[in-house]
Design a protein around this nucleic acid. Structure first.
Lengths: 345, 345
DNA sequence: TTGAAAGCGCTACCAA
DNA sequence: TTGGTAGCGCTTTCAA
């Protein structure tokens, strides 16, 4: 890093006097703290004269008063914070978009979404860390939360715990996103296209098993009882690995491959084409996630389009659960999948 | 959404009795709240007998006691929360990775990173919302924070405010990530390769101006005083737009193009190739961000590799600033750029 | 219409 | 070695 000298060392901004409190505002406005609270929260029950209101607001503005969320929620006994663990590794545009939507939708319902950076904590440990913040609801993607974690969160006052993952957890609401439907769609599609010796790419990258295993299982399921075979193809997301796999492609004798997602499809297609294998004549290829890049490949990539729940739907589920925390946990199957056939299959 | 009936409506998990407090633990263990606090925080100054410790821990475990972060930090007068706004739109793998690293590094220094979902709040409004949480430090990417926002945060007790963006803000530390170096590298490279009529893709997507404008400016800068020309090419990230741009490519008479990043490069390359334009013979192409996909394109994509600061470096800057909040804000230029030449230029 | 004061859960000082 | 207690900043009930 290159230090850039600031021209005039700016007067250090006021020797870190601590933050103004409502008492400071009260003092400056010449009223009590209660009055300050009434004014700033637009308390309906109490009538405060207009001149007083003005004085209070003025004082607050002058001091740069910002209420202290911790104190407030301590007093109130609850908050409107919805907590999610921050993803530990880069996630695709699909999921990012989903999070954004969800944040927006929950924001409309006056919740505040907070992504908590849980670096390396495991299960119950993580649940405890989250519970310390006393969120009103917790949303957990993946399968990192067990029944004990759910229990910890509920006992600490979380009125809704929602998992987004392959299976439901005792005591928690569940948005079942079983990725086997993705594999199922892909497998059925390839079978319909007359393919019988079907490869399935399984990423070697850690953290992806949660998705890859069900997708593989879905393919198997779709082909159960047919004469088609399924071959598992472990593959790291780098060129070398793809080239090595492509080199033994003819020996594998596959006539189709489901590549886990569009990015692995691009990787593998490139390697196969460099190897002289024709797509789709020799090998049909289908990806998943319906990313933009699939349309840019040649041949254009067939893919499985994922239908995630809308942010609004999930936000409403959370809100319902918060309002009636005693209700039995709901479990919803929310992952839809549809094949987008292009040229590669 | 499809409702899946749970087989036995599970006994609603204990009529939401509220969370156990340290007083509950004390009562159960037959000690005072002070003792509970000492034991659970391993207070060094005080010696508690082993049997007592055991009783306290046992009681805490039995009740599922989790300390209340708000109460704790209210009492302590500070927290170790580092707050960042959650990105409002999907960001690339580069930035996601950076955030992850940063979270890890700050975690090692015992900070907790929280991404705050600031849906639609603007500037000062957002700053105030963040300030309510009384974070010890605030990290703000982009240019959404003005001097007033910084002031609000500092007055509310934030000991470090760090901006990650094109320019430094009065009162805040700055990690200057001026993307003009990216454009500069690209422009210089294309010039060195003998190109003189240079196009620069400018994404139409909102939210990207913060990056695209400096990248464009960098190209201009690199070519200032030469005989080369720079042509701005607005482009939306979809096939149709790319095809339309490609259709008038020959009229544009460009012999090189810097595509903003690798994804737009892929989009445009595909459209150009479909139009029969040879790369790099007719038009040289260079992207940026050095994504995996560039290596998979044919011809292989030249790109500008971005050197972001490591998470550890930034974490240490934050830590320094927190420890000495009175110190004059530092400004560091942290964005490095180097050309990775492949086949497309 | 406004103020006094209790108390949310926690920690740390001082006393026993 | 342990307990009592004040007080962090806020809201809200009760009194004036």
């Amino acid at each position: 890093m290159v230090q850039i000298p600031k021209t005039p060392p700016p007067a250090s901004p006021a020797p870190t006097r601590s933050a103004p409190t409502s008492a400071d505002v009260a003092r400056l406005a010449g009223v009590s703290r209660a009055t300050v609270s009434y004014v700033l929260n637009d308390a309906g029950a109490v009538r405060i004269s207009e001149p007083t209101r003005r004085r209070v607001r003025e004082a607050a503005r002058e001091l740069g008063y910002v209420p202290h969320a911790a104190a407030r929620s301590l007093r109130a006994g609850h908050s409107r914070m919805v907590l999610m663990p921050a993803p530990a590794f880069p996630v695709g545009p699909l999921y990012s978009q989903f999070i954004s939507d969800l944040q927006g939708a929950l924001g409309l319902l006056d919740y505040t979404v907070v992504q908590y950076g849980t670096a390396g904590l495991q299960d119950d440990e993580a649940a405890r860390a989250w519970a310390e913040l006393r969120p009103v609801a917790v949303l957990v993607p993946g399968s990192g939360l067990g029944p004990r974690g759910v229990e910890v969160l509920r006992r600490s006052g979380a009125r809704a715990v929602v998992t987004l993952g392959p299976e439901s957890v005792e005591g928690a609401h569940a948005l079942l996103m079983d990725h086997d439907v993705v594999g199922h769609s892909a497998g059925a599609h390839l079978f319909d296209r007359g393919r019988r010796r079907i490869g399935v790419v399984v990423p070697r990258e850690p953290g992806l098993e949660a998705f890859s295993a069900p997708r593989l299982a879905g393919v198997r399921e779709a082909l159960r009882g047919t004469d088609a075979t399924v071959t598992e193809l472990p593959l790291a997301h780098d060129e070398g690995a793809a080239a090595r796999l492509a080199a033994r492609w003819r020996d594998l004798g596959l006539d189709a491959v489901f590549t886990y997602n569009d990015e692995y499809a691009m990787l593998l297609m490139r390697a196969l084409q460099d190897e002289g294998i024709r797509i789709p004549e020799d090998t049909a290829v289908i990806g998943a996630d319906n990313l933009m890049l699939g349309r840019l490949l040649r041949p254009r990539l067939s893919t499985v389009h994922l239908e995630l729940p809308s942010g609004r739907e999930l936000a409403e589920l959370v809100d319902r659960a918060v309002r009636d925390p005693a209700a039995a946990p709901e479990a919803h199957k929310v992952l839809g999948a549809s094949v987008v056939r292009r040229e590669s299959s």
